[in-house]
Design a binder for these strands. Sequence first.
DNA 1: GTAACGTACAACTAAATGGTTGTAGAAAAA
DNA 2: TTTTTCTACAACCATTTAGTTGTACGTTAC
Lengths: 115, 115
Amino acid sequence: MVVEKDNELWADRAFHALSDATRRDMMTRCVRNSPSISTLALAYPMSFAAVQKHVTVLERAGLVSKQRRGREQLVVAERSGLRRASELLGEFEQLWRGRLDRFDDLLQSDTESGH
Amino acid sequence: MVVEKDNELWADRAFHALSDATRRDMMTRCVRNSPSISTLALAYPMSFAAVQKHVTVLERAGLVSKQRRGREQLVVAERSGLRRASELLGEFEQLWRGRLDRFDDLLQSDTESGH
DNA sequence: GTAACGTACAACTAAATGGTTGTAGAAAAA
DNA sequence: TTTTTCTACAACCATTTAGTTGTACGTTAC
């Protein structure tokens, strides 16, 4: 119910966050480095504010979190977020398995009934 | 180079397609059933045309394909598409592995150098 | 043959997205 | 202390998105 709703909302945000090449690149940099926002910003041909917004999108999707260090804010990748997204895709593949299994069952019962 | 560009473009489309709860639900239905577009449309509180557009988004992302049967068009889920998306997320997790390995190496060399 | 069904597609609207510039404050450096 | 750096956030703009209705056309059913 409510949990489902939340899950869907989270999935919306996570996949949306991953649907942009810049943000995906940011993810790889954050996994490796946990750079500050301004360091991150140096890597892209856009304003600091734009980069800041991208980070916010990733953050609200639970894919990164911000960690203050003095006047700068380090962007650290959240493994749990990526994991959760992976698992969601896994559920789809599981559905396929289920379908194939049912198909196998059908063949099985068909054989057993002697056709 | 070009391949990379294409890959990024595909990833954009795939994750964007998955970033909508309606489309994710459509995917599960297509995995199970391969329903026609109009059958699919019965399941959602929106116009046929809207559903048609969602299917197009999934199709352009390589997550489903359409297969004509008489006057109707069956929507069949494409396992390869889902697989490819899964693999992409897998690469991120792999990055983490890489980082942890480097960390281990660091510890290793630190120990070896006798501190 | 005619009516009904399933699809395709164009044109339109409202809202969200990705970018910009500008302002302001807190921390570090000079 | 003054200046610079890093961050936050508001306001604005152009484009895309998700939805709508309406029209047109091939296929199936009567």
